[in-house]
Amino acid sequence: MVQIGYTMMTEQAGPRDLVAHVVGAERAGFDFSVTSDHYFPWLESQGHAPYVWSVLGAAAQATERIPLMTYVTCPTTRYHPAVVAQKAATLQLLSQGRFRLGLGSGENLNEHVVGGGWPSARVRLAKLEEAVQIIRRLFDGESVHHHGPHFDVENARLWDLPDQPPPIGVAVSGDRSCALAGRLADVLIATEPRPELVSAFEAHGGRGKPRIGQLPVCFDTDRDAAVARAHDQFRWFGSGWPVNSELPGTTAFAAGTRFVRPEDVAASIPCGDDVDAFVDAVRPFVDAGFTEVALVQIGGDHQVPYLEWAERKLLPALRAL
């Protein structure tokens, strides 16, 4: 049976609200949670971007059962991998073993803030591979001295280590990232229900490991209002990773999506309160071999009614998958 997750979308709510929302998701019966790690929202209408690691620390104390996960953190530019390892180990201790560290090669949108330019996709992936190797060694309790092509680590050691280190997930979008994830990750992360991603992950060592997908949805009893909100805040979603990872700020995302129509968004994101439409949107992930699907309810001010509806109607229907 596929597990259904809740997304704390840091681009659309402030830190206190995000913690309240994940408490509500735990109460509603979601199987796990994930959260984005951004410095910017994609569009100004989303309006938020708090520091996710503080939010996760608070969420770890406010919840009891629901697993937590970054979806995803870039450990190569805005953060050094040695610092990411320390943050993740601490959060695993605070959550008493409920944390998974999701990693990816990053987006210009967030990583540009520290300067230094934005490298090519091939370089970004090489940096991610080196970062994962450093984090693994620190999780193993090593004193790490490392001088590689992209990172230096001088006598680093984690002094507070959990008995079980956080599982590491790696976000994939093509053959090279799937090969990296299959070799080095415990979990596959994707935003598209493409069976070839699962196949490539398994071919490189990922067989039997969890595979997590993510899907935006927009619940509202007024479908027209749901479509309008999805268009206002999530019309960037259909551009795809090769485009989204390169754009430098909200102005670029607004310009790049200016010709996207509400009906275009409604064709790819389930909107309204038709449970069958939401189930039909999740089914391609299940058919592609994903074991977990994290839903994103669009609109920071619309989480409470969504959680109530999900508990009563959506989650029972999705359990049948």
Rank of each mutant, 00 (worst) to 15 (best):
Q164V: 12
A200P: 03
Q12P: 01
G117Q: 01
M69F: 05
L161V: 05
H38Q: 14
F219Q: 02
L94K: 04
L94T: 00
W241P: 06
A200E: 15
G106M: 09
R258C: 00
R319G: 01
T257P: 10
V282E: 03
G174S: 15
I4A: 07
R65M: 08
P270Q: 14
S45L: 07
V55I: 15
W42S: 12
S268W: 08
T10G: 06
G47K: 08
G29C: 07
N108R: 11
L68E: 10
A28V: 02
V153R: 10
P149V: 04
A252T: 09
F139S: 05
L128K: 09
D152M: 08
Q61L: 13
T35N: 00
V260I: 15
V286Q: 06
I4C: 12
T251S: 09
G14E: 08
E154V: 15
C271S: 12
H80T: 10
G148K: 02
G240D: 11
W159R: 05
Q46V: 06
A252N: 01
E263K: 11
G205W: 07
S177E: 04
R65Q: 13
K127M: 15
A225V: 13
D276N: 12
I189Q: 03
Q214C: 08
R223L: 06
E308R: 15
L318Q: 02
P262Q: 12
Q303C: 03
I135W: 09
E111Q: 13
M8S: 05
Q297D: 01
L101A: 04
T191M: 11
F234P: 00
L180R: 05
V293Y: 10
V22D: 03
H204T: 12
G256C: 04
K87S: 05
I134D: 10
G57L: 00
V113F: 09
H150M: 11
G208T: 14
A28F: 03
P165L: 06
T76P: 02
A277K: 14
D301Q: 03
V282G: 03
D301A: 13
L247W: 15
R194Q: 14
